[in-house]
């Protein structure tokens, strides 16, 4: 049983990076495809489309930071806590990355027709980013309390 809990602890440490990377990859890929599509129909402003498509990259960065915060000697006492914090943060980062990508794809698709709404169209993706920050900050807070 102890070995199993230790295994869970290690999973918890690495999950934020793994799932954060998945979320970022999928989110950037979705928004990136929209950016490429928009470039076919516009004559300028390519850079901002590509820049917007890169926004979901932050999820893997949050995951890496939390991984360092969780990294310690894994024991039967702290394995459960590491798994719970890391696992749930990883799931949150995965889901946030995917949906942030979709929000960005919509923003890019809409603003190619009406460039003046570009900033406002980014708002939903920015708000989603805010939720990722909440999950990230409170994971750090809780990580500080693990023995």
């Amino acid at each position: 049983m102890t070995d199993f809990i230790v295994l869970l602890g290690w999973l918890g440490i690495y999950t934020p990076v793994a799932l954060g990377a998945l979320g970022s990859a999928i989110g950037v890929a979705i928004a990136g495809q929209a950016a490429i599509g928009a470039m076919l129909e516009t004559e300028a402003g390519y850079g901002r489309f590509v820049g917007a498509a890169a926004i979901p990259s932050s999820n893997v960065i949050y995951g890496i930071v939390v991984m360092f915060a969780l990294q310690r000697t894994v024991t039967a006492d702290n394995g459960g806590a590491l798994f719970a914090i890391g696992g749930l943060l990883g799931l949150a980062l995965l889901y946030i990355g995917v949906w942030q990508g979709r929000a960005l794809a919509s923003a890019i698709a809409a603003s190619k027709n009406k460039s003046e709404i570009f900033g406002l169209a980014m708002a939903p993706a920015a708000i989603v980013e805010g939720f990722a920050v909440f999950a990230f900050v409170f994971a750090l807070v809780l990580a500080g309390g693990i023995g």
Partner: peptide, 29 residues
């Protein structure tokens, strides 16, 4: 799968909006 439909993202993003009856020609030929 939540991302299974993504091959359409680029195509949809490349299609200009059509405003019916307000334009003389469709925005893409």
């Amino acid at each position: 799968m939540i991302w299974a439909d993504q091959p359409y993202v680029m195509l949809v993003a490349s299609l200009p909006a059509i405003r019916f009856l307000s334009e003389k020609e469709p925005p893409i030929n």
